[in-house]
Structure formats: structure tokens, C-alpha cells
Design a binder for these strands. Structure first.
Lengths: 153, 153
DNA sequence: TTGACGCCCATATAATCCCATGGCATACCA
DNA sequence: TGGTATGCCATGGGATTATATGGGCGTCAA
């Protein structure tokens, strides 16, 4: 199973088009997919994407109750209602809908960030800020772990 | 299971290419891999590498929730965002991306350092400095251990 | 009619492949 | 044992291909 790896910055043209990085396209082509499925990320100001197969797998995991509970309904709504299937054009580009551009603060450039099973599309400068924060937090986490280990000795 | 052992210094050409040492390639070929996966090391000014299988194994350990927590999201980000899959060319070389060259201070030469399950790529002179420091610290550690043992007698 | 959208082609640049070379170590032969 | 042949490996450069990106044209719907 190939995964989405690496960060690639591409341009967004006047039509809202952006090239999906070739390595990411290769991951999808391995599943015979000719497009990506995108939805607003719940964890940050960016767009998340994956293959349609993953979305369909999500459907399977949801309980198929005739009368869904409030929780399931909310989850289904968040993911499925706002998800869009974006097909590649001849050059491997997708068109980002206006609401996605707005949600992620995208203007002239988009950064594709690999996340393993999924990827995200960020405004490059927002990405830099967010990454710095994540790094800080990870380092702090690491420090406290080392301290705990030392005390345990 | 073969592991990455030894140190090899190879040239970096104008295109950013560097030959992966044949013994290292053999380790990867044993796993039917035709490339290496590299990422900036957290512990020092160098690039770390391993087989793609090792990264994919990490994907498996991550929880596969439709809605990831912020924590899991950050972990996936730190692992995958800065990693790159670098395939071998016909001569067993890889091309090092510009940001890797910068991170590790690489210019005309790179030192491949075996670390068992992984390996690292260093600027040769930076490696020498770092190794001297590591040696100093190891010796100091040894001294204090010996002293502690003597007091215990 | 005016956008929005899908589809096509054009192009510069960057990445990838391919082959040639020289050095080193090993294997082979006289 | 000395000398030579062979093969692998690291490296250089050129040719070919892929990629990212810009723009044009027809179709459909508001």
C-alpha cells in the first residue's frame, strides 16, 4: 500500500486549478482512481484529500441504523456533506471549489502535504506557522518524556 | 535481516546526485525496494534514511479514524510531511532535494553512516565534529560509571 | 449572454533515463 | 608469484521524457 509522502508547493491559476503532485497521482493511479476526494479538514485550516476508496470504506464502518443517533449523523454530515470528488484534467490538475479556497485561505499557491493515508492542501505560509507549532509541541512532549524516564531510574 | 553498517563518503554532483553505497543498496534490494525514504533527522544536522517498508509500518501503527485527533494528526504530519521517497537511477544514485542539502549542510560530498535499521547522510566534516563530541561524552559517561563503582566497593 | 466548467493543446523547465569512463579490487592464468 | 583480465562500483555528461503551468475553444446552465 503506497502512502502520501512529502510536501510539494504548486501554483493555483486564475481558474482555481492546481496540479496534484505526480507522486500523489501515482498513489491514486495504483488504485485505478483518476481523481481525488477532498473535504475541509477538522484539525486545521486546510483541505484534506484521499482516494474515493477511503471514503467508501468510511461508509462501511458507520452503523447502518434506520434511525441514526445524533453522533453518527453529525460525523456523516461533516465528512460526506462537504466532500467533493475532484477529477484530474489532462495534465493531472484539479479545480478547487471556491468554498475550499476560502476555508484553507488559498490564493496563488497551495502546499500538498503527505500524511500517509491522506494528504492536506495548505496555504504555504499558514503551513509554516502550523508546522513550527507542531514541532514545538513535539519537542516539549519529548522533554517531559525524558524527564519522566530519568525520575523513574 | 541485513542492516546498514559502515561509513562511506561519496560525491554529490551538480545535479544533486549521490551514489548510495552498494552495501546499503543490497540491504534494500533484499526487501525488493528500488529506492530509499529520507527525512531530516530530529537529533542532528543530517538526513536520515531507511526503506519505505519501515515508513509504511508506521502508517499501520497509527489509528485509522475518519476524524483524527489533533495529536495523531500532528504525528502523521511530522513523519510524512518532511519525508521523501527517493528512487535509484540506473547507477544506484539518488537525487537529494534542495531542502535536504540545506538541512544537512551538504555541498560536494556526503557521508553515509550506517545505524543498523536506518542510516544517516552527513556533511563529512560535520560528522567528524559530531563524532568527536559523542566520543567525549561516552568517555565522560564511562568515567563517572567507574567512579561510582569504586565508591560502591 | 455571460460565466462556469470540461477538454484540448502548447511550452519551458526540471527530472529521469541511458550510456561511457576510470578506478579499484578480485579472479584468473602463465 | 607476477602479471593480466574481469567485473563491480562510483561518477560524468548528454539525450529523452515527464511535469507543471498557461491559454484557447466549445458546451451547458443560469
Amino acid at each position: 500500500m503506497k502512502s502520501f509522502i512529502g510536501t510539494f508547493i504548486n501554483k493555483i491559476d486564475a481558474k482555481g486549478r492546481i496540479s496534484v503532485p505526480a507522486p500523489f497521482r501515482a498513489v491514486l493511479q495504483a488504485k485505478s482512481l483518476s481523481g481525488v476526494t477532498c473535504y475541509p479538514a477538522l484539525t486545521g485550516p486546510c483541505i484534506e484529500g484521499c482516494g474515493l476508496d477511503r471514503i467508501e470504506a468510511m461508509v462501511e464502518t458507520l452503523p447502518d441504523e434506520p434511525i441514526p443517533g445524533v453522533e453518527e449523523d453529525a460525523i456523516a454530515h461533516l465528512i460526506f456533506a462537504s466532500a467533493r470528488d475532484l477529477p484530474f484534467d489532462g495534465g493531472g490538475r484539479i479545480v478547487l471549489p471556491a468554498d475550499f479556497l476560502k476555508k484553507a485561505g488559498l490564493t496563488d499557491q497551495g502546499a500538498f502535504v503527505g500524511k500517509g493515508r491522506t494528504f492536506q492542501i495548505w496555504n504555504p505560509s499558514a503551513l509554516e506557522t502550523a508546522q513550527a507549532e507542531m514541532f514545538e509541541r513535539a519537542m516539549a512532549e519529548r522533554e517531559s518524556l525524558l524527564r519522566a524516564r530519568k525520575e523513574a531510574d
